[in-house]
């Protein structure tokens, strides 16, 4: 009834899963992931993950917020409703700066959070791994490597063998 989503391999310690991640990365897999109960330092490197592109969303959001803030204040005070306050010029980047700065932060944070959601393909209502009973242990004391069938390097026997060599004591297939 259901096709396989991928293969899941369980590990007992951060060091084991780190070594497995290095092996899987070295084997050239692309569609795979590591799940741990807490962040494991150095895992990004072991998995060969590069710096996240989410920073670009932040940067562009920030630039939009800043220019938007400046343009908004310029339009309001110097064009649409010209009013002199305290003998100051109708527009100056000085008094417009604090508000534009807040807009920079606001837009940068929105861009970051929505960019992150977009890059992660979120929100989604269901994930095949959540049906796997064993996988619930990931929030407790077990560490998992998951390799998807979608990966071009995936082979039912070879991939299983790779994970066994990496030291996993429990490997099972996950249904879609």
């Amino acid at each position: 009834m259901s096709k396989p989503y991928g293969v899941i391999a369980e590990f007992d310690t951060p060091a084991d899963v780190m070594a497995a991640a290095r092996a899987v990365n070295a084997a050239g897999f692309k569609s795979w992931d590591v799940h741990t109960p807490f962040p494991v330092h150095g895992m990004d490197e072991a998995m060969g993950i590069k710096n996240s592109p989410v920073g670009w969303f932040t940067f562009i959001g920030g630039v939009c917020g800043y220019t938007g803030g400046m343009l908004m204040i310029w339009f309001q005070n110097a064009v649409d409703y010209r009013i002199i306050v305290g003998g100051k010029p109708l527009f100056s980047p000085l008094f417009a700066f604090p508000v534009s700065y807040e807009m920079t932060i606001l837009f940068a944070s929105f861009a970051t959070i929505f960019g992150m959601l977009f890059l992660n393909g979120l929100p989604r209502l269901h994930h095949p791994l959540l049906r796997n009973r064993r996988f619930a242990q990931v929030t407790h004391d077990k560490f998992y490597v998951v390799i998807e069938t979608a990966d071009s390097k995936y082979s039912e026997t070879e991939t299983r063998k790779l994970l066994e060599t990496a030291g996993s004591k429990h490997i099972e297939q996950v249904e879609e």
């Binding site: 951060p14 807490f38 962040p39 494991v40 330092h41 150095g42």
Partner: peptide, 12 residues
């Protein structure tokens, strides 16, 4: 470096 066990536990 971050490779010691205590660092992992203390990090988060």
């Amino acid at each position: 470096g971050p490779s010691t066990a205590s660092d992992h536990q203390g990090a988060e």
